[in-house]
Structures are given as structure tokens and as C-alpha cells.
């Protein structure tokens, strides 16, 4: 019975240890902001932070994150970098359908936490794992730069 710490709150879960974190978050804990996109870490929709590291939750078993600090999109507004990213996202009108944007924001916040002034190449490297079928990439780039400048 793994205990997970998600957004600062502890959850005792009756789930198999090989269950991907994604389904524990969405179907058991009820945090549906983290999205299912591909199931094989190829699209980034399920991105969360595990001890600050951007992590695709669809291929991360719960057993691997017991005792670690898991942060999801629902708590991004409590993170100074996350809040800046969200503000920049709003100002640049990044979202369209919005389904991938939780993952995009998690990836962007992790990038900015690691590199407060990312270059275009840094943005490409950090964000290439996140697919957006609405093609909001230009605005994602703009918003990341805007968030970087707002520190």
C-alpha cells in the first residue's frame, strides 16, 4: 500500500506497485489535470514534477515515487516559477484546445527552474517531448521567454 506525497498531501493508496503514477493521480486520487496522451512517454501530456524533475507519469510506476515529492498542474500556482509560467501562458494566449497544456506548463516550469534564461535551443531541448496538436508552439516559445523576463 504505497503512500504518495502529491502537492504536499499524503495519500495512502491501495494500488499495485507497478501502476503508472498517471492512473493513480487521475483515477484514484482524482487529480485529472494531468492528462493521458500516449501511454509511452512520447507526448508529454502526462508530465508532472518528481522532486522537481519533469517526469512522464504514464511510464512511472507508483513504487518508484514513494517518498518523493510529486507536484501536478493543480499546485503550479503555489510555485513561484509555475505561477509566472501560467501568467505568461494567459498573456500570450497560448492555449487552444488546452488538453496538452498541463504538460506543457509542467515542462516549461521545470525548464525555467533549471535555466532561468533559456535560449531557443534550450527551449527546443526541454519542450520537444511535448506535443501540441493545435500547434501552439510559437506562443509556447513566446510565453517561456516572457516568463523568464518577468523574474
Amino acid at each position: 500500500m504505497p503512500a504518495l506525497t502529491v502537492n504536499g498531501k499524503s495519500h495512502s493508496l491501495d494500488v499495485p506497485p507497478d501502476m503508472p503514477l498517471l492512473w493513480a493521480l487521475r483515477d484514484v486520487i482524482g487529480l485529472t489535470g494531468t492528462k493521458f496522451g500516449c501511454g509511452i512517454a512520447a507526448c508529454g501530456a502526462c508530465m508532472v514534477h518528481v522532486d522537481g524533475q519533469p517526469t512522464p507519469s504514464c511510464v512511472t510506476p507508483v513504487a518508484a515515487v514513494v517518498g518523493k515529492k510529486i507536484v501536478t498542474i493543480e499546485a503550479m500556482d503555489q510555485d513561484p516559477v509555475g505561477r509566472r509560467v501560467q501568467t505568461a501562458w494567459r498573456e500570450a494566449d497560448v492555449v487552444q484546445c488546452g488538453y496538452c497544456q498541463s504538460g506543457q506548463i509542467m515542462a516549461a516550469a521545470a525548464l525555467l527552474a533549471a535555466k532561468p534564461r533559456p535560449s531557443d535551443a534550450d527551449i527546443d531541448a526541454a519542450m520537444a517531448g511535448n506535443i501540441c496538436r493545435c500547434g501552439t508552439y510559437g506562443r509556447i516559445r513566446t510565453a517561456i521567454k516572457r516568463a523568464a523576463e518577468s523574474t
Partner: peptide, 17 residues
Amino acid sequence: HRLDSPDKIDGKAQFGI
């Protein structure tokens, strides 16, 4: 600005799934 942005950047937006 898009009116649906706030819900779509904090995980609150409800999709069918």
C-alpha cells in the same frame, strides 16, 4: 484574451476524459 485560458492552465478544465 481567451476566456477559456484560466481553466486550461491550472488543470481545472474538464474534458470528457
